[in-house]
Simulated scan of single mutants.
Amino acid sequence: MSDPVRVGQLAAGRIGPLQGTPRERAQTQAGAADNAVSFRQLLGRAELKFSQHAQQRLKQRGIELQPEQLDRISSAVDQAAAKGAKDSLVLYRDIAMIVNVPNRTVVTAMDGASMQEHVFTQIDSAVVVGES
């Protein structure tokens, strides 16, 4: 049923802590470095995305966000996700954004003038982004 094991010999199919030649192990480690690149790409996916509608609204309303501002907003989305939010109102300065938290996608955005007498519906949370 099972292969006999003799002193100084391993039976086929048994795995020790080190496998392959030193060259094969080096190639495996190089493959792990390739996986690190893939991991970086996965982290890149964690960035905030903007729907076509949100991009149009930002452009129409003359709203431009700098990288450091996007980082703060992204951190706010992280906080909302940690609390289990699905659709959140994110308030940053005089900008309001509705964000689909699981997809990390800004669905729409408006400036202070557009927020006048506006009712926000279909949200389950709100996050106010503080200044640093």
Score class of each variant (00 low, 15 high):
Gly8Gln: 14
Gly8His: 13
Gly8Arg: 13
Gln9His: 15
Ala12Ser: 15
Ala12Arg: 15
Gly13Leu: 14
Gly13Met: 15
Gly16Asp: 11
Pro17Met: 14
Leu18Ala: 14
Gln19Cys: 14
Gly20Tyr: 10
Thr21Val: 09
Thr21Arg: 15
Pro22Ser: 06
Arg23Gly: 06
Glu24Arg: 15
Arg25Ala: 05
Arg25Cys: 05
Ala26Phe: 12
Ala26Cys: 11
Gln27Gly: 04
Thr28Cys: 04
Ala30Ser: 12
Ala32Gln: 09
Asp34His: 06
Ala36Thr: 02
Ala36Asn: 06
Ala36Lys: 03
Ser38Lys: 09
Arg40Ala: 07
Arg45Tyr: 11
Arg45Gln: 14
Ala46Cys: 06
Ala46Lys: 08
Ala46Phe: 07
Ala46Ile: 02
Glu47Ser: 09
Leu48Gly: 03
Leu48Val: 07
Lys49Glu: 08
Lys49Tyr: 05
Phe50Trp: 10
Gln52Trp: 07
His53Phe: 08
Ala54Arg: 02
Ala54Cys: 10
Gln55Val: 02
Arg57Met: 05
Leu58Tyr: 02
Leu58Ala: 12
Lys59Phe: 10
Lys59Ala: 11
Gln60His: 09
Arg61His: 12
Arg61Asp: 10
Gly62Gln: 12
Glu64Ile: 10
Glu64Tyr: 05
Glu68Asp: 11
Gln69Tyr: 00
Leu70Tyr: 02
Asp71Met: 03
Asp71Ser: 04
Arg72Val: 04
Ile73Met: 05
Ile73Leu: 04
Ser74Asp: 08
Ser75Thr: 03
Ala76Gly: 15
Asp78Ser: 07
Ala82Asp: 05
Lys83Arg: 13
Lys83Ser: 07
Gly84Phe: 02
Gly84Glu: 00
Ala85Asp: 00
Lys86Ala: 00
Asp87Glu: 09
Asp87Thr: 08
Ser88Cys: 09
Ser88Asp: 02
Ser88Val: 06
Ser88Ala: 11
Leu89Gln: 06
Leu89Lys: 10
Val90Ser: 01
Leu91Val: 14
Leu91Asp: 00
Asp94Glu: 15
Asp94Arg: 12
Asp94Pro: 04
Ile95Gln: 03
Ala96Gly: 13
Met97His: 07
Met97Thr: 09
Ile98Asp: 00
Val101Gly: 04
Val101Thr: 03
Pro102Ala: 06
Arg104Thr: 03
Arg104Ser: 05
Thr105Phe: 01
Thr105Met: 12
Val107Asp: 01
Ala109Trp: 00
